[in-house]
Design a protein around this nucleic acid. Structure first.
Length: 292
DNA sequence: ATTAATGTTCAGAA
DNA sequence: TTTCTGAACATTAA
């Protein structure tokens, strides 16, 4: 479930511990579970990454990017249960990849030398995540604009106006299409539509101008607020920040996983769960009506 | 003890 | 072309 706010939280947590450090060793962890999808093969990764400086940690949609001085970049996609951690993994058995980091290169944050043991991990319980080491060319092919739409936080109203009508699918399903808008997942799609007061089954090309405007604003509000709360840690406890701590946005959820509960907006109707594209959608049938 | 459900992405089918 | 379906997984709740 790491979506944009969770991945952004990971990146912010990682940055002070990882940026400006050299990779002493980058290697797959021996793991009793089937290994996650990692490429290229281990010794190619070692050859290209060992000794490299990590110049920047950033987010692309739901991925964590570690930029190296060579121009190569690690691209980590946590998918369902992946975590990027600088300390305290939930267990050793689901560690998938480890970076041993050297001392910070001069020019880093002075004063605050961090006392972490200089390791960075990719931990993934279900193992659906992926890790790639890409050259700039490979990066362009894998994550170029034809694969990923504008980042949900950077998407302008004009871009919403232009892109949303390009599909006839239900707006909730369209929000999950990473080529249309990148970073929104199942949880935040329901939350955003509730704040925007838009019925999840409304076809994307049917939204009125005022609704597109509300969608744009709700996307900003919900995602920014979720980042502020460091993301959502659900009942299964899978998502944690870079220090293996809970997020707290789950306490702010208005509809997600709250079927039967009273709608926080109208206080009259109860939240309903439906299934769209084989995934749960939650909404208030009173506040989010198909017509009007 | 099985089974369903979880949610992201992609390949392949409709 | 566009949209839909199932598989990849580990774990937990029913």
């Amino acid at each position: 479930m790491p979506e944009l706010p969770e991945v952004e939280t990971m990146v912010r947590g990682l940055r002070p511990h990882v940026e400006g450090r050299r990779i002493l060793k980058a290697a797959r962890c021996r793991c009793r579970y089937r290994s996650i999808d990692i490429s290229p093969e281990s010794r190619v990764i070692s050859r290209r990454a060992n000794g490299q400086l990590i110049t920047e940690v950033r987010r692309m949609a739901k991925r964590v990017i570690l930029e190296l001085e060579s121009g190569d970049a690690f691209v980590i996609e946590p998918r369902m249960t992946g975590l990027m951690l600088v300390s305290d993994p939930p267990d050793r058995s689901h560690l998938r990849f480890e970076w041993q980091l050297g001392e910070r290169v001069a020019g880093g944050q002075d004063g605050k030398s961090d006392e972490r043991d200089g390791r960075l991990w990719f931990w993934d319980r279900r193992g659906l995540g992926t890790l790639r080491l890409y050259s700039p060319d490979e990066m362009e092919i894998a994550l170029g604009p034809h694969k990923l739409g504008p980042d949900a936080l950077a998407m302008t109203l004009d871009e919403w106006r232009e892109r949303l009508p390009q599909t006839q699918r239900a707006v909730k399903v369209a929000l999950l299409d990473q080529r249309l808008v990148a970073g929104i997942g199942n949880l935040y799609a329901s939350e955003i539509l509730h704040v925007a007061r838009i019925h999840p089954e409304l076809p994307a090309h049917c939204l009125k101008t005022s609704q597109v405007k509300r969608l744009h604003e709700a996307t900003q509000t919900v995602l920014q607020t979720a980042i502020h709360y460091e993301g959502s840690t659900l009942a299964d406890g899978t998502y944690r920040n870079a220090l293996n701590q809970n997020g707290s946005y789950q306490n702010e959820h208005r509809v997600y996983a709250r079927s039967q509960e009273l709608c926080p907006t109208c206080g009259k109707a109860t939240i309903v769960r439906i299934v769209q594209a084989q995934r749960s959608t939650f909404f208030c049938p009173k506040c989010q009506q198909l017509k009007r």
